[in-house]
């Protein structure tokens, strides 16, 4: 485990609430979180628990109602949309549940996209190399519609790694895939992560996927709690899942 002591993400007293007609709905209770460079963190919780809200604030897609978020020492809570875009372009990678590939671009062009936006050199070579690594070397010129779900998510993973981001956010990366394909994709994700030493923040309700992260936090009705250990978490999640069922 290459845990670096450098703090890459720090959250202080973060809250989020939305105004619904006359009353305010609190999505996140005051939250504290620190993520070190190279760490892999899973945020787990049931639907509507607020984990996705947290992820979007951590990644600089959304702003908190109060509190502070520092990503690579950038105070995201103080930055405007354009400035946050710059931070994302320089430091952040994404993997989405819906894959979100651009349909009118080929696999290779999709992979190259963040590299181009961050103005990284050798985007083509890097893109090709990454597609080889995710096993799609022969599908580079294919459009997303010509690829299966698993293949699309592999392209998305390649896209996420091309800029060698400091931190990678993954939102239910296997949520749209069957178990077997999901497993392949997960393996790929962790393998690449290990290789590059990227910090990974993963949101999932799948305990098995969460268990592959070094650290798990649980979100419940807007309250974030640190899971004590892997086994403890798995057990409680299993109960939660059973209860939900």
């Amino acid at each position: 485990m290459q845990v670096n002591s450098e703090t890459i993400l720090k959250v202080n007293a973060l809250t989020k609430s939305v105004q619904l007609e006359d009353k305010s709905l609190s999505l996140l209770q005051p939250t504290e979180l620190t993520v070190n460079a190279g760490e892999t963190l899973a945020i787990v919780g049931s639907s509507g628990s607020g984990k996705t809200t947290l992820l979007s604030i951590l990644a600089g897609l959304d702003l908190p109602s109060s509190g502070e978020v520092y990503l690579k020492n950038h105070p995201l809570h103080q930055l405007n949309e354009e400035q946050r875009s710059q931070v994302r372009a320089q430091h952040v990678g994404f993997i989405f549940q819906q894959f979100l590939l651009v349909n009118s671009l080929t696999a290779l062009e999709n992979v190259m996209l963040p590299a181009e936006l961050a103005n990284t050199e050798n985007a083509v070579e890097r893109g090709k190399a990454l597609l080889e690594q995710v096993g799609l070397g022969d599908r580079m010129e294919h459009y997303p519609s010509q690829l299966s779900g698993g293949e699309q998510q592999r392209v998305a993973i390649a896209r996420a790694f091309i800029t060698e981001p400091d931190i990678l956010f993954a939102d239910e990366p296997t949520g749209n895939l069957d178990t077997k394909t999901g497993l392949t994709v997960t393996d790929l994700l962790f393998a690449l992560n290990e290789k590059t030493g990227t910090t990974l923040v993963l949101v999932t309700h799948d305990p098995k996927l969460a268990a592959r992260c070094q650290r798990q936090v649980e979100m419940d009705s807007g309250v974030l709690t640190e899971a004590r250990s892997d086994s403890d978490f798995v057990d409680r999640s299993a109960i939660n899942v059973a209860n939900m069922g």
Partner: peptide
């Protein structure tokens, strides 16, 4: 919409 959202999430500015 999804294209723009992905572009923006990946760090493209509005002017871009």
């Amino acid at each position: 919409q999804s294209v723009v959202a992905v572009f923006r999430a990946l760090g493209a500015t509005i002017s871009h």
